[in-house]
């Protein structure tokens, strides 16, 4: 039986790991390669690097980080952040990323998803969606630029569109839940997951191990992304897996 996946996410700025709290405030928490190896040892199922480097001069540092990680870690690695063109994507895959995650660039130029999927295969194109509930309504709006800019797009319709265009996976972040530690947005995740054929990774809001159970079981997510809950040692990946196992979810125990 296919296991649910636990995926730690490392925000990387100019080659160093940081953790954004509610997207804006940042704290330094170490070397990405060493952190990746530590998570591999803990039994993480995949790893995501989100490059939040603002300066384009420092962008190339990410390629070195990815190269070093891919040479030392034998697990799937997704890299997102600042990938705007097919050439950017090719360069990141050539550095050793297994998948790339597209967010703002997919909204700006949806054709990028089609092109990238046809060049590199659907399996390596993840579309990241930052969604926020529209006040007083039963729908969620897509935001770009790290959650700063509303797009007017409906999150579920957008997920369906990018899937048609060739995305092999959706990384869904609830902006309402992100940083709260009060749990994932289970309803958003379930509605979106039921609307697309591809796997959905739930992100934003993990505070307890039960939050993982909720979004994987009731939210129909295939995987959970989390940062601070693991990053600051609140729980290990192994503890999270054991908890999911006790709750009856299929996990890979290492």
């Amino acid at each position: 039986m296919l296991s649910v996946r636990i995926i730690p996410c490392l925000d990387v700025n100019a080659g160093r790991v940081v953790k954004g709290v509610r997207f804006q405030e940042l704290r330094d928490a170490g070397d990405p390669v060493e952190t990746a190896k530590a998570y591999e040892a803990q039994g993480a199922d995949e790893l995501v690097f989100l490059d939040i480097t603002a300066s384009s001069d420092e962008r190339n540092i990410m390629h070195d980080v990815v190269e070093a990680t891919a040479s030392q870690c034998f697990m799937p690695l997704t890299v997102g952040g600042g990938l705007r063109t097919v050439d950017d994507i090719r360069a990141m895959l050539n550095s050793g990323a297994d998948k790339v995650s597209l967010n703002t660039s997919a909204v700006k130029t949806p054709d990028l998803v089609d092109k990238a999927a046809s060049f590199f295969g659907n399996q390596c194109i993840v579309v990241a969606i930052d969604a926020k509930r529209v006040a007083g309504e039963d729908r969620w709006e897509v935001y770009t630029h790290g959650g700063r800019n509303p797009t007017g797009l409906d999150a579920i319709a957008w997920a369906q569109e990018v899937t048609r265009r060739g995305a092999g996976e959706i990384l869904l972040t609830s902006m309402d839940a992100d940083g709260t530690k009060a749990g994932y947005d289970v309803e958003l995740t379930r509605r979106l997951s039921e609307a697309v054929e591809v796997p959905v990774i739930a992100s934003g809001g993990a505070g307890t191990l039960d939050h993982f159970v909720d979004v994987l079981r009731d939210g129909k997510a295939s995987a959970v992304l989390a940062a601070s809950i693991f990053h600051f040692g609140t729980f290990t990946i192994a503890q999270a897996k054991e908890h999911l196992h006790q709750a009856g979810l299929p996990v890979r125990l290492t």
Binding site: M1, L2, R5, D45, N122, Q123, G168, E194, V198, P199
Partner: peptide, 13 residues
């Protein structure tokens, strides 16, 4: 069964 995703992605025995 829409819960069965394609691609088959992740760890399986």
């Amino acid at each position: 069964d829409p819960a069965l995703k394609v691609p088959h992605m992740g760890w399986n025995s």
